[in-house]
Design a protein around this nucleic acid. Sequence first.
DNA 1: TCCGCAATATGAACGCTGATAACATCACTC
DNA 2: GAGTGATGTTATCAGCGTTCATATTGCGGA
Lengths: 225, 225
Amino acid sequence: MTKLSRGKSARKRPVQEPRPYHHGDLRRALIAAATELLEREGAEALSFRAVARTAGVSQSAPYNHFSGKEDLLATVAEAGFRALATSQAETAAHAHAGEARMIALGLDYIGFAADHPQLYRLMFGVGVADWHAYPHVSEAKHASFAPIRAALAGDFPSTRDAAAIEHAAVAAWGLAHGLAMLRIDGSLARRDAPDQPPAEEAALQLFARGLAHALAGVGKVEKSS
Amino acid sequence: MTKLSRGKSARKRPVQEPRPYHHGDLRRALIAAATELLEREGAEALSFRAVARTAGVSQSAPYNHFSGKEDLLATVAEAGFRALATSQAETAAHAHAGEARMIALGLDYIGFAADHPQLYRLMFGVGVADWHAYPHVSEAKHASFAPIRAALAGDFPSTRDAAAIEHAAVAAWGLAHGLAMLRIDGSLARRDAPDQPPAEEAALQLFARGLAHALAGVGKVEKSS
DNA sequence: TCCGCAATATGAACGCTGATAACATCACTC
DNA sequence: GAGTGATGTTATCAGCGTTCATATTGCGGA
């Protein structure tokens, strides 16, 4: 008795509708609560207990749906990758092929990270010690990478060297990911004029233009060096 | 009494030399202990208390040298950036100018991350909520980026557009950082033949070759699109 | 030489965390 | 209607970051 805290449910529902013992859709509610907490309060504030509180259940109820905190984080990360993949696929579908599509994909990628910085950091961060333990997440990650790869393969169909396409895709993915992280970290300070496009756009343009030349060269020179 | 744990000092120094009350160089020892713990046990195991234990002092002794855990992490990250800057500067000094130097810098960058994955993740990760609170770290970060920028400026001195050089530097940094993170995460799986160079090397080559073309084009076309 | 102070270390304590265990409640099938 | 498994609850544990009062020490000034 004399427990002052925890009067939440009593405050929200004074007398009637005493909240059924079973939540009904707790797993989804926990993922939503975790996602919201992550973006609103930051990664540090995302505790397993806080997620349970936000969902309105006891602190140990989530263990019926997730093996532990890492499992929950991995699930949130997977949802993030799926959202990113959807965004990338839509961008690829609505852009004209060629350099413009590459740049659009890059900007979309960076934009996703900028819109959900905490989520993006979780997706690529330390919260989960070993991603290999969650193959679903790795699969979703590669799905979010697929549009870039597909765009490159579509833009340079004549290139004989399939490996070169793969290397270009890795470079494009790396560039997009790196620029996104630098943007989130604030490392890409506003050094340029306010009316100019952001630095990452110019960097993407430079990359896309150079890539066209380099890939065209690959087929011709055929391993010159 | 009857305290079973904590018998470490008694085990190591049976009777004599009862470890002076004052450590003497605790700050440095704490940084070293944190760095070692980070790489050996991972970021999750790096607790403030564990660092103190490793250094052989009480749990609250570190508060005389760091304002808190975040301060310690930021200091470790700063040391990491300084080490990376040194490595980059040496690589730049020993490589021939041109594409080869760009590739060497990129490989050195990725190699650093691969050699110290946990440290690298800390440097760019969530452990510290707001890096802006630690200007020393930001400064060290940009110092580690300086060799790439300098190499580009040196390799393309004829390029009129100084902004293009800056954009190319951002692209190069982003690419190196992105490839490093993908490598650490295991996202760059071994898909290629075992005797071939790793994917990031091919990606760097592609990028460097394309950059040369794109930067050469910038001066001539002068904002064609 | 000795005093006093600042620097540095100690242990206890607080509230929080992730996790486990024992128990309660409910939906659903036979 | 009994029983059983899924899904909740409370109680409890060790460990965490942090703060506090206290203890120990090195060192500069009388």
